[in-house]
Design a protein around this nucleic acid. Structure first.
Lengths: 347, 347
DNA sequence: GGTTAGCACTCAAATGAAACGAGTGCTAAT
DNA sequence: ATTAGCACTCGTTTCATTTGAGTGCTAACC
């Protein structure tokens, strides 16, 4: 930002730091007492006035202190803020809560969300590993009653999906078993989003027609792979109520309503899966309900491929630096665990 | 209740009805104007005074009206309240939102919770079908990488669970396949809670030792069947904020914190699975965070066997009669859908 | 020139007095 | 047994006042 000299930046930083801590508009006197800044309050006032004119500060009303704008936070995270590192204690805390025997993806995701929200005191969300980026590993048809079977799909990331389907009445266990084998053989390692219709004739030939059934079944496979809405694990939903800016019941309500809109969060997180870290500040959010929030995300991987992402939702005055550090570290931990689960062992 | 004559009951009912509607302490004049009650406010005051002495009413402060106590609600639901029926519109609304192609248990449960909270405007919860009451149908080991496999378990209620396990390095796909078959054959229709260790020697013989592996695997099966904490589907978590008694930020916070304690809800719902309906009013709740709430539950079944339960959480002044009607109807609908999914067809 | 002391000014928030009014309890008349 | 009447209570609302944190501006200072 060329329009700010070093002194203005330093003052702005002091303001932001203070505001992040106290959530109260900060006045010139507070800053003038700051050890690193040897200036009188009057000088600070002049500088603040400039900063306001440039759009970095806002005044709730004339006789109040000033509050950083979204633009200020943006500048802050882009240029001013320095990366912080987690303390050994914090790392240990995280490790301790990851160390238990975790063998189900569901459980791991839940645990991750829990740790995230507990260590940051914000609301956290974790996108479950996304199935459509992933290859099919096994299909099993399990009979559950006359004319019904459970279709179970397993992918290489250990995600399972299931659905009840009708089966022809003349199809017995052995046939289902055979069909499971054929399907598994045919579809293994194909990506689920291109289980295309060209397969059907081929399958029909092998299984002895039942075309409509095959059709219906493949359709179910396709549909099962759609995001179902249960794809985002949230934790610490009420944490935000502890921050003074959300003591207003209506703000709290709209925040809580916003995070109950799983679709929105889902979209945010899938978008965020493309970049290692992302920070979205206040009005930069698409949802107007979240215009007083910031969202920070990070991705996690299995091996080298990005599998999903996770994020922190908090007030715009959140401690970006720490949150980034936490997300980075936990992202790494999660990637390690998942990778370990699915890749061969090196021993 | 022998200590209340008919007139007192009628007055109490009028008070409760009014309070359910308005959430404001109700005064003697309001009741004296009630069409069914041809009495002056002074008489009502005397009666109210009696009712207070008997513990059915409470006064927030001297110059306020009166508020029904938990004891009053208890009397109300036990003796006074009359069953209400849903309107055709409401039934239709419910049917419409159940009618879509629903083939995954997860999806159905989510849908149920959604409908429940939307039609009642309270917070709803649905206990997912509980696996330990249920019989095993299929076990599949799917290799995911060197030395690792995904263990997939399917039960007769169409519930799947999965976990990553280590497998001996010298075990190949065919062997896994064979083991899956043997396990399925051995364990099918046995209840999961008694997959006992007597099986291990038998299996070891058939699969060619690998005792430690079999041990670990069966242990995983057992563990997978434990409740994981993701067993309760909630919906409409913020609905309660629309009720005036929760405009106090602290009350709202404690309510929201209470329903984030999945363990508590899980326990409530499993306990409630034993009876067709249950009503728990205010202080009757174990959790002190919920002492201002009431919980109404109903069970659902597959065929004739109770599979789980669902409930509504609202303020103590909730519309018990309507909630019961809704729960009854939705419970029935859900039972039908699930039963239909798993039982043979009658056509 | 930039910096600062000083002072008048602003305005949200806190304080407090007064009026209001919904509701009660009690008493005496019906 | 019921009710009209009335004094009393006490939370809520209203409005004016005070308070104080903070500003902007000006004039003096280095």
């Amino acid at each position: 930002m060329p329009d700010l000299d070093i002194r203005k930046i330093r003052i702005l930083q002091a303001i932001i730091d203070d505001y992040i801590l106290t959530a109260a508009p900060v006045g010139s006197r507070t800053i003038s007492k700051h050890p690193d800044i040897g200036l009188s309050s009057a000088t600070i006032r002049n500088e603040m006035s400039d900063l306001e004119e440039l759009g970095y500060l806002e005044q709730p009303h004339t006789s109040a202190g000033r509050v950083p704008s979204d633009k200020a936070y943006r500048l802050y995270v882009n240029s001013i803020m320095q990366k912080s590192r987690l303390s050994a204690d914090e790392m240990q805390y995280i490790q301790r809560h990851f160390s238990n025997t975790l063998d189900e993806v569901e459980r791991i995701v839940r645990q991750t969300a829990w740790v995230l929200s507990n260590i940051t005191n914000y609301t956290s969300m974790v996108l479950k590993p996304q199935i459509h980026t992933v290859k099919l590993k096994h299909i099993q048809l399990v009979p559950v009653s006359e004319g019904k079977a459970l279709l179970v799909i397993v992918t290489d990331a250990g995600i399972t999906r299931d659905a009840i389907i009708r089966i022809p009445h003349d199809m017995d266990v052995t046939q289902l078993e055979r069909l499971s084998h054929i399907l598994t053989a045919k579809l293994t390692n194909s990506r689920l989003d291109n289980v295309s219709n060209v397969l059907i004739p081929e399958l029909a030939a092998q299984i002895g027609e039942h075309r409509e059934f095959l059709n219906a079944m493949l359709e179910t496979v396709q549909r099962s792979m759609q995001p179902t809405g249960g794809n985002v694990e949230l934790s610490g939903k009420t944490n935000i109520l502890n921050y003074p800016e959300y003591n207003d019941i209506d703000k709290a309500k709209s925040f809580l309503a916003a995070i109950e809109e799983q679709d929105v969060l889902y979209k945010m997180l899938t978008d965020a899966s493309k970049v290692e870290f992302s920070i979205t500040i206040g009005n930069e959010n698409n949802s107007t309900d979240m215009k007083d929030c910031s969202v920070v995300t990070a991705t996690y991987k299995v091996g080298d491929v990005s599998m999903g992402s996770m994020g922190i939702i908090g007030p715009t005055r959140m401690d970006y630096s720490r949150v980034l550090a936490v997300l980075g570290y936990i992202g790494k931990s999660l990637s390690d665990i998942l990778t370990n689960m699915f890749e061969e062992e090196h021993d």
